[in-house]
Design a protein around this nucleic acid. Sequence first.
DNA 1: TATTGTTATACTCTATAACTATA
DNA 2: TATAGTTATAGAGTATAACAATA
Lengths: 160, 160
Amino acid sequence: MPRTESCAPKSPSFISRDGYLVGWLRYVSNHVSQAFARKLEDRGVTVAEWAVMRELYGVDCLAPSRLAGQLGLTRGAITKLADRLVAKSLATRTPDASDARAQTLALTAQGRGLVPKLATLADENDAKFFAHLSAKERSMLERVLKDIVRIRNLKSIPVD
Amino acid sequence: MPRTESCAPKSPSFISRDGYLVGWLRYVSNHVSQAFARKLEDRGVTVAEWAVMRELYGVDCLAPSRLAGQLGLTRGAITKLADRLVAKSLATRTPDASDARAQTLALTAQGRGLVPKLATLADENDAKFFAHLSAKERSMLERVLKDIVRIRNLKSIPVD
DNA sequence: TATTGTTATACTCTATAACTATA
DNA sequence: TATAGTTATAGAGTATAACAATA
């Protein structure tokens, strides 16, 4: 038997129920990421690690500070993620020949081999949450998100 | 002087750069929430706390377990958030008269008074990130996000 | 037995800020 | 001085799972 329903809705509400995108965004992002995290678990990789691997996959190697810029994270955060990937033998750190301060991150063969498998999981996860969208909606969602990232990147180069 | 650009882009890439919504979503959500968190800081409230306050604002009171369902969180998570709101005198816990196991959460007068101010901050934050969207894009984004929440809610009633 | 809420525990994610070693 | 990366610290945000009280 459900509880006595003693809590009445209040009206009028002085704040709009709509126009609160942060909330919806957070809800969706959290849940989509959580579901994805479960899928990645079997492979021993976290969502943040996957994001790094994905960036590294498209290039031979990448400087941590550039990675930070691309992912919108601090250098400290990248250090930690890189630590973990290296510990798992999925990535390597190589000192830069021309600048002793700098270094370069790259996927190992193992890491490289893993990416397509993880990408499949990502696709499955995307499908699970976004399959019901029309092609038009889907592409608009994607474009809108990318635009925001782009605009953000222009405005706030890594905070740090 | 920037570093030697020794990391060439790899081609062809075997995973698509597109079709990876989790990533874009996470990026945007993290950054929008982070910016919002900074705004809320002055008021001594976190983003998750704000989400709870917002739910409570529309009703007289609400059972924690229902709140968990609405926000897509576990009961344990709600307990912690409620603890904090109560500690800040923004909300109260009241035992349910008809069921000694149950209780009810409600905003205090102070909490209630704070909500519109926080809502203004939320609106400002929304504007900062989404103002460049056309009305059509904006409403589609909102609808798409809400739809996903709705569908999720139907499918996976609180995991727990 | 099932349900409500709490507690204990554990992690991920991320930031800030100070620090080291170069440049 | 400025830059690249690391480290130490901290806190938010969640989950899982076991538990207590009540139904």
